[in-house]
Computed example of a mutant assay.
Amino acid sequence: MMKQDLRSIRSVANIKKAFVDLLQEKPFEKIKVSEIARKAGIDRQTFYLHFVDKYDLLDKMNKEFLQVYKTILVERLEGDNSFALETY
């Protein structure tokens, strides 16, 4: 069971990296799921086990980025009452 979890984690990481690499080469609209899968070294079916489509992938990556950014911001501002985070 743990081996499958590690494989899933690795697959998702490879998908995200492949997607970012492809975004550096061409516009989002031109990227196909089959290209992401090929670059990630997985089958398209594996991509679809983790994401509905490339829009879902983009949405989930954006949400992860925003959560990481928020966490860092809160940690840096912790104890600094001169800045009200709620106003943003």
Rank of each mutant, 00 (worst) to 15 (best):
D56L: 03
I15L: 13
H50S: 12
T71M: 11
L23Q: 12
E75S: 06
L73S: 11
L73V: 10
V52C: 01
K17R: 14
L66R: 10
D59M: 06
P27W: 00
R10N: 14
Q45D: 15
L58W: 05
L57D: 05
L49M: 09
D43Q: 11
Y48N: 10
A84T: 09
K39F: 03
G41N: 03
L66S: 06
I15R: 02
G79W: 01
D56T: 00
S34N: 03
V74C: 04
D5A: 10
D43Y: 13
E64M: 14
I31E: 03
L57I: 09
Y69W: 08
R38S: 15
I31K: 00
K39Y: 04
V12C: 04
M1W: 04
V12M: 13
K16C: 15
T87Q: 11
L22T: 05
R76C: 09
Q67M: 10
L66V: 13
K3V: 12
G79H: 05
L22H: 10
I72Q: 11
S82P: 04
E29N: 05
D80S: 00
S11C: 07
V68M: 08
D59E: 14
K26C: 09
K60D: 06
S82N: 12
D56H: 07
P27L: 03
K32E: 13
R38I: 06
Y88L: 14
V33P: 01
K54Y: 02
N81L: 10
V52R: 09
K30D: 14
L49E: 15
L23E: 10
I9E: 12
T71H: 12
K30C: 00
Y55L: 04
L58E: 09
S11N: 15
F28G: 02
L23W: 05
D21K: 12
E64R: 08
V12A: 09
K70Y: 07
S8E: 10
R44E: 15
V12H: 04
I15D: 07
T46V: 15
F19C: 06
M2I: 09
R44D: 15
L85K: 02
G79D: 06
K3T: 11
L23G: 00
F65E: 14
L22R: 05
R7W: 03
D59V: 01
F83R: 03
M61I: 12
D21H: 04
S11W: 00
A40T: 07
M2G: 10
R10V: 07
S11M: 01
K63H: 14
Y88C: 02
Y48F: 14
K70I: 04
E29S: 11
Y55K: 07
I9F: 06
